[in-house]
């Protein structure tokens, strides 16, 4: 399950399966990301590298910038400084500072179709059925065949355990079912990585468990994932690398067992004891 345990310093190394992967560029690489909203500096220079098969959990208190970082990876937010490199190909920018934006729409589309997002509030399209939600982007954006996409979509819905809900509308589903549908929607893009933005935060514990189960099974398949979460159990058990953000900077990162079991920085110790007591 832990595919890539040993890359604390992000260097690809040693084992056989990894030497194969080393030849390939990381799926997504963020370098020195700076993001400011008005005068509020949310990200103050963050590096993050997700290699194929790696599961990264991003933790930190509210306002630490973890969601913003994730949204930068998908260009839902444009960082004022820093590079976003998708499979070795850096995003090309025009302008600088607050007027900075990606200059090549095709490049943005390529990045976004390969990094599927799962949102805290599910954000299923309310006017489409569950199956229509799943095949919408593959058909309209990737130009896939609708019938084949529907067959694949049904398969994915089966996989996340809601095959019987394909014709229902999002409002007819529970939160847990909606989030699993949203995961199926992400998978339907056959992305190179999946970005989870607090996928369980809007769910009560019972429904949370079913979503966590799906996320774990995806990790077992060796999918590349970046998970922003407040769920420390999820962050610890699913990831093979954890990153603790504090006030827009990486405070501590490394193997989850090490990070959660033996936190080095005072901030992380405080954070973990505070969340444990909840």
């Amino acid at each position: 399950m832990k595919v890539n345990n040993s890359n604390l310093d992000f260097d690809s190394n040693a084992t056989d399966s990894e030497s194969e992967r080393a030849a390939v560029a990381p799926v997504v690489c963020l370098e020195n990301i700076h993001k400011q909203f008005g005068s509020l500096e949310v990200l103050k220079g963050i590096d993050l590298k997700a290699s194929a098969g790696e599961v990264i959990s991003l933790i930190g208190s509210s306002g630490s910038g973890k969601s913003t970082l994730l949204r930068c990876a998908n260009l839902l937010e444009v960082p004022q400084d820093g590079e976003i490199i998708f499979e070795g190909e850096p995003i090309i920018w025009s302008g600088s500072g607050f007027s900075r934006k990606p200059s090549d729409n095709d490049q943005v589309r390529k990045l976004r179709t390969n990094l599927s997002m799962v949102f805290q509030q599910f954000n299923l399209w309310a006017h489409l059925t569950i199956l229509e939600n799943v095949i919408e982007a593959p058909v309209t954006v990737l130009g896939r065949d609708p019938l084949q996409s529907a067959a694949f979509g049904l398969e994915l819905l089966e996989k996340v355990g809601i095959g019987d809900k394909s014709d229902a509308y999002p409002s007819q589903l529970s939160g847990g079912q909606q989030q699993r549908a949203a995961i199926a929607r992400a998978l339907a893009m056959e992305p190179r990585a999946i970005l989870f933005d607090e996928p369980t935060s809007a769910l009560d514990p019972e429904l949370e468990a079913e979503v966590v189960r799906v996320i774990k099974s995806l990790a077992d398949e060796g999918r590349t994932m970046i998970i922003v979460t407040h769920d420390m159990k999820l962050a610890r058990e699913v990831a093979n690398q954890s990153i603790f953000l504090h006030q827009g900077l990486i405070e501590e990162q490394g193997d989850p067992e090490e990070l959660f079991g033996n936190p080095k920085s005072e901030r992380l110790q405080q954070f973990l004891s505070a969340t444990a007591s909840v």
């Binding site: 839902l76 589309r109 976004r112 599927s116 949102f119 954000n123 399209w125 982007a137 954006v141 893009m189």
Partner: peptide, 16 residues
């Protein structure tokens, strides 16, 4: 807004 943002996050053009 999140309905539209999600569409953008999945690579749709503004027209789509």
């Amino acid at each position: 807004k999140n309905q539209l943002e999600t569409a953008r996050a999945y690579g749709m053009s503004e027209k789509q």
